[in-house]
């Protein structure tokens, strides 16, 4: 059974960068979301066992998504991939239960390490 994952980023280029960084032999079904609302819809309909989440997005930002998932005690594993790398953003993301905070530009090795650490690959 492929693992349902969602890539949430308003930038097409960044969504592509995440796709390219995924391990080639990892059996997944990918959903793409262009904003926080779409990310939550995906999570609520079981399409996001893992959620790769950007922070600055229209409609609902990544913090809003994290907050909602945290309140729902969601089992979604969230890996934040952010251009905003200020200490305060990291602290907030950690307090909202994200599994890992990765900086943009995304380093594929770091993404794979995060998936390995969470026991998915």
């Amino acid at each position: 059974m492929p693992i349902p994952i969602t890539i949430a980023d308003d930038s097409l280029m960044s969504r592509k960068a995440v796709r390219r960084a995924l391990p080639e032999d990892w059996d997944v079904e990918i959903t793409e979301a262009c904003n926080g609302k779409e990310a939550l819809e995906a999570a609520n309909s079981g399409k996001a066992e893992v959620l790769f989440l950007d922070l600055t997005m229209p409609e609902l930002d990544g913090f809003g998504v994290l907050k909602y998932l945290h309140e729902q005690q969601s089992k979604t594993v969230v890996i934040v991939i952010s251009a905003d790398i200020q200490p305060e953003a990291k602290l907030l993301v950690d307090s909202l239960g994200a599994f890992r905070f990765l900086q943009k530009p995304l380093q594929p090795a770091q993404l794979r390490q995060a998936l390995f650490d969470v026991g998915l690959i």
């Binding site: 930038s11 251009a83 905003d84 200490p87 943009k104």
Partner: peptide, 24 residues
Amino acid sequence: EEQRDALQELMNISMGQAANSLAR
């Protein structure tokens, strides 16, 4: 549209680095 998206994202990433330098 694709080029614009890419430029915007590249700028977004570099401004994130700039903001981090100043924020610290």
